[in-house]
Simulated scan of single mutants.
Amino acid sequence: MDHLNLTWTQTFILDGFTTTGTLRPLAFLGTLCIYLLTLAGNLFIIVLVHADSGLSTPMYFFISVLSFLELWYVSTTVPTLLHTWLHGRSPIPSVACFLQLYVFHSLGMTECYLLGVMALDRYLAICRPLHYHALMSRQVQLWLAGATWVAGFSAALVPASLTATLPYCLKEVTHYFCDLAPLMRLACVDTSWHTRVYITVIGMINTCDLVIILGLYGGILRAVLKLPSAASRAKAFSTCSSHIIVVTLFFGSAFIVYVGPPEIRAEGRDKLIALVYTFLTPFFNPIIYTLRNKEVKEAVRRVIQRMRTVLKTP
């Protein structure tokens, strides 16, 4: 009980990145600009999907859900990163630290499930076109989207609760947010069992989901190669290319940090790699889904034209 009380009453110190002189304000301004652009880009996709009827398809519905998730995902960690850029080593109450840990991993696992659902949507659209709209009805879309959030927030309870009940002897977290490995280094006890549980839970979820995604894309590839013309094959592949890029960025960086060899997850390296999936991936997602997508560009033109018409109307 004393260990549990110690865990919940102490304050941790986030070290952030070690920068000095003029680099710190420049890093703060750069991070702030990318953060604001990330929020604006994901909000833009959400508004566009709901404003244009041409994007009222299951694929764009799930893209808007992904953008909504990314708004929360990036906002879970970047404010603490900005604070450490501005003030250096920053204290964070243990309750806030463990809450950040839980929310961050909940959203990460939700995105993992959501990327799998998006792959399923593309599989049904290409491999079952005649039954696609019946199989992916609005009710099914809402159910699948809701299920990803429930599954993500449920799965994260295991690593978050185990970490929160560890006894801690040290306070300095060598990271810019509260994550599993940096926190476990501060524990007073051997955490090898906890590490195995974390790798099993997070690794199994990510691995199973990735295997399912690869299996679905294997089916898509077989179906596309059977199409009669090169134009139809190119069109089918184009609807999947953006999702493939996002899957590669997300799963690649996540596996390196949480499942990769210990030397890669060493202090200092993990927070650099973490920038990819906590900061850069949410920033690039709107760019990937807009610049590489003709339908989105056409929807933007329609919305702008509609706005011009409304403004011209006396």
Rank of each mutant, 00 (worst) to 15 (best):
N206V: 01
V276Y: 05
Y168N: 06
I304R: 11
G252I: 05
S106E: 02
C188M: 03
R308H: 09
G21F: 07
F284W: 13
T19L: 15
L275I: 07
L130A: 14
H175W: 06
Q139G: 11
V224R: 07
V197S: 02
L71A: 07
L107Y: 08
L291P: 02
A181T: 09
I304W: 08
L99N: 09
E298R: 12
K312S: 13
W149D: 00
Y73S: 09
H175D: 15
T31Q: 05
H87G: 10
V224K: 07
R128L: 09
T163H: 01
W149I: 12
T57G: 00
A223D: 02
L275V: 10
K271E: 08
M307Q: 11
I199L: 06
E298P: 03
H175S: 15
F28Q: 00
I45S: 04
G260V: 04
R233Q: 14
T76D: 11
R196D: 14
F104E: 07
E111K: 14
T19E: 09
L81Y: 10
V201K: 10
Y102P: 06
G215K: 03
E298K: 12
N5I: 11
T20F: 13
C33L: 15
T200L: 15
H131V: 09
C188Y: 07
A145N: 01
L39T: 01
Y123D: 09
L311F: 13
I287Y: 04
G108T: 06
Q10L: 14
M118C: 08
T239Y: 02
R185G: 15
C97W: 08
Y258R: 07
Y217D: 01
V300R: 03
C112R: 05
C178K: 03
M1A: 13
A266D: 12
S64K: 08
Q139A: 06
P159G: 05
T77E: 08
A236W: 03
F153V: 02
